[in-house]
Design a protein around this nucleic acid. Structure first.
Lengths: 229, 229
DNA sequence: CGAGCGATTGAAAAGACTCAACCACCGTGG
DNA sequence: CCACGGTGGTTGAGTCTTTTCAATCGCTCG
């Protein structure tokens, strides 16, 4: 909590300005959205919000990666989504009314802006077009999540790992994939040891490279073949 | 296709009128929404729409149950949701823009009204409040789906079955649960044979009763204990 | 009566997990 | 500068849950 550092920030200076869900609003109401924001620094493993608490606003990810997860009975994390810069995090709970159903934690050092509930809702109220964007976004995620469920229920761990690696490749873009083995295993829904053994296989098969703990994808095509469909 | 029978129908006469997502609209614009609808009969196993096709409207379920599912690599179904009377089906794809990501098929003989795309969208355009309802509904489902993922990834099949039975109990309400063993297995994400063996266990433990192929839940409480969290 | 689908049972195989130990790296403090 | 502790990574062996395969049963329908 106390190790956040604050900085003044302008939405229109944000490199993700035009990509985010709120861009439509920002374009039309620059004066309003350009009130100075406070960007917070979050250290690796610092929590944005936790399952069960109540939302006070949304988080706009300016830099870094954030994991969104739920916990099973024994407290084991299941990572549902890994958010990258430009994404808005934690707005679903604000609409569904109740508490957060998921938790969010910084995977690496992050810069994140906070938009309070009242402001966020008033942004939406004054700009109906955003509402459509939100519906579209939610619908899309719902479809993706259906596929996620099917994968986890029917594919072997080898297939799931291959599939997950292609997703992680997209999330990390130019960068090498930098996740602890445990986080990666919790994303795929398998045991850490199993993950490590399979990564070794994939490396020997020339599908990926491993430097230190970081992964680089060599052949996304072959991974997709293994993943199936 | 050809075995549907048609019947004139009034929304305001529909017993689900006030419960559905569109109720708000219906209340305020009775004259409009009360244009005579065509209610179709769907026989068991008849498809409402299939993954990959493009939406032409939404389905309003008046009577019966419908399974919503995706197919994995080998064509095996993964049932994502079982819809009951009063629910509106297939509106997500209309917002996300593209094709259906899921399929929907009648689990039993159903009566279903169809609302064309243009009409549905105009209903929404003329009534902003509905948009909020939709956002709330989508957000809620997204949260539920996160829990579904965690369950399927972390719980044993026994725990998952217990949990699924409580859900099915809610869906079927007063009625006994009436699903083929295969559909039930595809909902839980396990093999049919495993399901049958576990059902036998549950029956011997006095948690459920089995008549013919129909299930009756005896102790939802005990099932929830087994399911955990 | 025979075909066929869904339900059931049994036995064997396999995929993945758990447990336990060990390693490697890194920052800290003496 | 080095010993120490801690975290995260790796490996091996054994276990076990769940699946797969094969066969049988029972009911319904033409």
């Amino acid at each position: 909590m106390s190790d956040k550092s604050h900085k003044q920030f302008l939405c229109s200076n944000c490199e993700w300005h035009k990509l985010s869900l709120l861009s439509d609003f920002c374009e039309r109401n620059v004066q309003d959205s350009d009130r100075h924001r406070i960007s917070n620094h979050y250290k690796r493993n610092q929590s944005l919000f936790a399952e069960g608490s109540y939302p006070r606003g949304v988080f706009c990810l300016n830099h870094g990666k954030v994991k969104v997860f739920t916990r099973g009975d024994e407290g084991k994390e299941q990572i549902i989504h890994i958010a990258k810069a430009g994404e808005i995090i934690g707005f679903r709970a604000m609409f569904s009314g109740g508490e957060y159903k998921v938790s969010a934690t910084a995977l690496e050092d992050c810069t994140i802006c906070f938009i309070g509930k009242e402001e966020f809702l008033s942004i939406i109220d004054t700009n109906p077009a955003i509402r459509n964007d939100i519906i579209r976004e939610l619908s899309k995620e719902l479809g993706e999540r259906a596929i996620f469920i099917t994968n986890i229920a029917q594919k072997t761990v080898r297939e799931r790992l291959a599939f997950a690696l292609t997703i992680l490749g997209d999330v990390y873009g130019e960068d090498q994939i930098n996740l602890t083995r445990e986080d990666m295993a919790n994303f795929i829904g398998i045991a850490t040891e199993t993950l490590i053994r399979l990564l070794k296989d994939f490396k020997e098969e020339g599908l990926i490279d491993i430097h230190n703990r970081k992964l680089e994808i060599i052949s996304k095509e072959k991974l997709l073949v293994i993943a199936g469909k």
